[in-house]
Amino acid sequence: MNIFRLVGDLSHLLAILLLLWKIWKTRSCAGVSGKSQIMFGLVYITRYLDLFTNFISIYNTTMKAIFIAVAIATIYLIYFKFKATYDSNHDTFRMEFLIVPVGGLAFLVNHDFTALEILWTFSIYLESVAILPQLFMISKTGEAETITSHYLFALGSYRALYIVNWVYRYYFEGFFDLIAIVAGCVQTILYCDFFYLYVTKVMHGKKLSLPA
């Protein structure tokens, strides 16, 4: 565990708690992509199946359990409790366009051809693109609420910090996992455009809106 990894994890935790809190507090999930949240739920569930097979640390187990619980709670709020506020007209990205190719790739490119390993690989690949429905939704409506943009910033920071963590681990521990690194870089690149808008608009007190 290095500092980049720890701050990355905390940023990840902050992001998902922030989104859950916002939906709960405003009693609304307007502007939030339910499809991205379903895919993140799928990411955590398929990745953390090793909760049952492999104990790493209290920290690891606790964080995994929190991620799964928060993801399920968020999906529940969007699709059940506050369904009336869900912007389904703008959440039109087709999940199968991501899940099917990613599933195929996980079968073809993985470390080991076993069920758990393929599901882990699937989850790594899926996480790298799971935010696309949310970004697509923002590009469709042309704007995002400020808390939603803080959520995206925290989530993107987590990915960027993980890259620094991998560089650190490569140099100091000789450890690297190419699948995680490539997928993590793809994922971080997807946030670059958003980071630019966040720094130029939201940090100056403006709402995130796209130029017409």
Binding site: I56, N60, E117, Y162
Partner: peptide, 10 residues
């Protein structure tokens, strides 16, 4: 070096 047991990242 790659080992499956090293899946300590979240």
């Amino acid at each position: 070096k790659y080992a499956k047991s090293e899946k300590d990242e979240l």
